[in-house]
């Protein structure tokens, strides 16, 4: 029983990370049709920015953790907005080229991070509370999992509220539904594009700082390894669906942890099998409107 609880908690923590990456990917794809390969770089950049902040302030206080989360989110959002304004916007409506540009950006930035921070993993320290565990139903769950799950829930709630109760949210939701109609009504969707990129970048940057505490290190490869699973989550959840991404994140991460434990480390393969099954049974994903 305690093993199952521990696996569930770890799976939920990992799922929270997947969701922080996948939510941005899904929103950006849903509104603009852009598959953002550079999203992993936003995450890595956020992680490094958070680490640099925490290092300067002394990494073991709550204040520096909070500030590093804010800086990570801010840097992620800034990088995303710059990407949208400088690269994506020039290639409006040319989806393949947009993908290619983000691919080039991902390659170039990972190499740049290698050059700046080195290829080796840098170990991070958090507040002392992170090193302790909390006992739930006999399982000793590491405390950082709770923070991850909490932040992911906050982000989910925040994005849903933003989409539902603000004017920008209305435009974005309408744009996902039918972009040409929104444009025809005289609303400039391009501002919504920038906002969506900012939200996605902020979530990814936040995810980067949290990922560095979950895994215990930062490295230039951090974003790329999470990005592939975030892609899988996005397809399983249904492209463009935020709720689908949330559900799929949890399902994929928990399944991955379970398979890693009970089926001798086959978690990654089981996830790919799940993807193949979903595609065979329901090509549009769990909550996807169109294929």
């Amino acid at each position: 029983m305690s093993t199952v609880v521990l696996l569930l908690a770890t799976g939920l923590g990992l799922g929270a990370l997947y969701f922080l990456v996948a939510s941005g990917l899904s929103l950006i794809y849903g509104l603009m049709g852009v598959l953002n390969f550079a999203h992993g770089s936003f995450l890595t950049l956020g992680a490094f920015a958070g680490w640099e902040t925490a290092r300067r302030l002394g990494g073991d206080s709550w204040g520096s953790l909070l500030l590093s989360l804010l800086v990570g989110a801010g840097v992620g959002a800034l990088a995303a907005v710059l990407t949208e304004l400088l690269l994506i916007r020039r290639l409006y409506e040319r989806h393949i080229e947009q993908v290619l540009v983000t691919v080039g950006l991902a390659l170039a930035t990972v190499a740049l991070f290698d050059g700046i921070w080195g290829t080796d993993a840098i170990f991070v320290t958090g507040p002392g509370w992170f090193d302790e565990t909390t006992t739930i139903l006999g399982a000793r769950v590491p405390n950082d999992r709770f923070l991850l799950i909490g932040v992911a829930l906050l982000v989910l709630g925040g994005i849903v509220a933003f989409l539902r109760f603000t004017r920008f949210g209305l435009v974005i939701r309408a744009g996902v539904e039918n972009r040409s109609m929104v444009t025809a009504l005289g609303i400039d969707v391009r501002r919504a594009f920038t906002v969506v990129f900012a939200i996605g970048g902020a979530a990814a940057g936040l995810g980067g700082v949290l990922a560095s505490h979950y895994f215990g290190y930062v490295s230039p490869q951090l974003g790329g390894s999470l990005l592939i699973f975030a892609f899988i989550v996005t397809v399983i959840g249904g492209l463009g669906s935020l709720l689908g991404a949330a559900i799929a994140s949890v399902v994929v991460a928990v399944l991955q942890q379970m398979a890693n434990f009970y089926l001798s480390g086959t978690g990654d393969l089981v996830v790919v099998l799940l993807l193949a099954t979903v595609l065979l049974v329901r090509p549009s994903g769990l909550m996807g409107a169109r294929a």
């Binding site: 592939i228 480390g265 990654d268």
Partner: peptide
């Protein structure tokens, strides 16, 4: 045959996932 059930960007992600599984198999 499995991947071509979806088109466009989804196909890209599916092929990426399959290749990743192959990469994991080789490393493991």
């Amino acid at each position: 045959a499995v991947g071509l059930r979806v088109g466009g960007i989804s196909f890209a992600m599916v092929t990426l996932a399959f290749a990743q599984a192959g990469s994991v198999l080789i490393r493991r």
